[in-house]
């Protein structure tokens, strides 16, 4: 009875207070729904149509996916993604962990050294790609520098070698991302209980053994987080390729994102471009969904 009276007496101000969070969030929710999920849905629909320069809604079923599977350039881009992604993730993790472990040894000027490792992350991939294009260019980079210094036989022309150009992308991407991995692992290392390390030292374990057997295995969540972040950077990589090689020589350094851009916006094959975008989304979801599922399940069980 008293509750009903209280509800009846609720002022408009109370109602506004109750609705205010929803009202404030509504515009951003709408933008996210339309701008992200709406366009994903639109791309998905376009991948089943015969869209060329402009969107069209003539249904062609899985024809665009079939054309994509018959396209040599798509397979080159996919193979490049496997090589680039695999090497980029493995080397970034290895370098990041090594630097974090070394920095964790009570180093003087640690702040300065950490900043040097982290500053590439502050640069955009376009800047990174341009700088490394200059460095690896046989006409004006390392190759020319060493030959000018008298090492006449030195050759480092991977940037113009169709078989090796993808490794140049790996070098630039590792340079940019390994500092970030270092920061993640360093934060993890600082959170490890020092009494466990001291106990292992009392038991006579050497420092490498302590890190390999005790400390690093306890950083499994950090490892998976870094793996997820690096994997999605690898799959989405577009600007690095655009700045460094533009997919060349020929299309030897194409990655799926570059393929999608080229077919959708330059070659007027929007249907096939959309099909490739959906396959890329599928690759990202194949990595993210099991990870998120395991994370959320772990939290529910805590």
């Amino acid at each position: 009875m008293t509750t009903a009276i209280a509800q009846r007496r609720a002022s408009p101000l109370d109602a506004l207070q109750r609705w205010l969070p929803k009202l404030v969030l509504a515009p951003s929710m709408l933008i996210v729904l339309v701008g992200f999920y709406g366009y994903i849905l639109w791309t998905f629909i376009l991948s089943f149509t015969n869209s060329s320069f402009m969107p069209s809604y003539k249904w062609v079923g899985l024809a665009q996916y079939a054309r994509l599977m018959d396209n040599d350039r798509w397979w080159v881009a996919s193979k490049n993604l496997l090589v680039f992604g695999g090497l980029f993730i493995a080397i970034s993790l290895a370098v990041g962990v090594l630097l974090a472990v070394l920095l964790d040894q009570r180093i003087r000027r640690e702040g300065f050294i950490r900043t040097v490792y982290l500053y590439p992350m502050a640069l955009s991939m376009i800047v990174t790609g341009t700088a490394w294009k200059w460095l690896l260019n046989p006409g004006l980079g390392l190759d020319k520098l060493l030959r000018d210094w008298g090492w006449e036989g030195f050759r480092f022309d991977w940037l113009v070698d169709p078989d090796r150009v993808v490794y140049c992308l790996v070098i630039a991407a590792v340079w940019q991302a390994s500092g970030f991995v270092m920061a993640l692992f360093l934060a993890g290392l600082r959170g490890v209980d020092s009494s466990i390390v001291r106990a292992a030292q009392v038991d006579g374990a050497s420092l490498p053994v302590i890190y390999l057997r005790i400390v690093l295995p306890s950083l499994r969540p950090v490892f998976f987080s870094a793996l997820m972040i690096l994997a999605h950077i690898a799959i989405k990589s577009f600007d690095l390729v655009a700045a460094m090689t533009a997919g060349g020589p020929g299309y030897a350094s194409d990655l799926p994102a570059m393929f999608m851009y080229s077919f959708t916006f330059s070659r007027g094959q929007m249907g096939m471009g959309s099909a490739s975008a959906i396959l890329m989304l599928g690759a990202i979801l194949a990595i993210l969904v099991p990870y998120l599922y395991s994370e959320l399940r772990g939290k529910r069980h805590d």
Partner: peptide, 16 residues
């Protein structure tokens, strides 16, 4: 090792 890595990280900045 740390200083060699520092040098590697600084080379592109120097080039720019």
């Amino acid at each position: 090792t740390l200083l060699a890595a520092c040098a590697l990280y600084l080379v592109p900045l120097l080039v720019m």
